[in-house]
Amino acid sequence: MSDTLTFSLVSPERELFSGQVDQVDLPGTEGNLGILPDHAPLMAAIRTGAITVYADGKEEQFFVQGGFADVTPAGLTVLAERATPMADVNRDDLQSEIDRARANLETLEDEGALAAQQNIDGLEALFNMV
């Protein structure tokens, strides 16, 4: 049994994180997930929110928007549509993002609206955290 998890976080533009970690907390569409070493193979969709990485007794947070977590025996890979280190996220950007998403919400219906609402909820939760 390995006591660390190989974790990598990639966005379309670049690889944000790659290395050995103790635990990763993910915002799944169906609820939050905590991934520990030797997790069973899993493929989960991710909603807007924060990923927390625990390594060497330290925590590191990333803001992600949409994507997938792929757990295999080789480790955990998160394919995020958008990802930024939490340190680079500020309230102003989030606020304008929320406003934009709200305006967009009115043009959508059914499934699209549901996804957009989820996105807004995640953004607002983050906004309160920052």
């Binding site: 799944g28 569409t29 169906e30 069973a40 193979p41 899993l42 493929m43 989960a44 969709a45 025996p73």
Partner: peptide, 8 residues
Amino acid sequence: GAIYTYEP
């Protein structure tokens, strides 16, 4: 031999 879990 494990089976993938999908969520959703």
